[in-house]
Amino acid sequence: MNREMIFERLNDVFRDVFDDDTISVNDNTTSKDIPDWDSLEHINLIVAVEQEFGIKFNMGEVTTMKNVGEMVDIIINKLK
């Protein structure tokens, strides 16, 4: 799966979690760019992404990832 495909699937997850069909994420998207992305929704997002890709983030990754780019890096790593 290449980066682009991952972003496509991620967009679906984000739109679903935040109930907003206009969301489109890129490498530099952070929680500041999406109004509803607070600490509560963060964990919902993480769980949704885990289910989408069939992977598990560890807690270190959950609390340290700074933007969507880093999230994608981790996903690629886990899918290898």
């Binding site: 963060h42 807690m59 609390t63």
Partner: peptide, 11 residues
């Protein structure tokens, strides 16, 4: 508490 209790609980 978010990082050490809430997140692990949710996950």
């Amino acid at each position: 508490l978010r990082d050490y209790i809430f997140y692990p609980l949710m996950k």
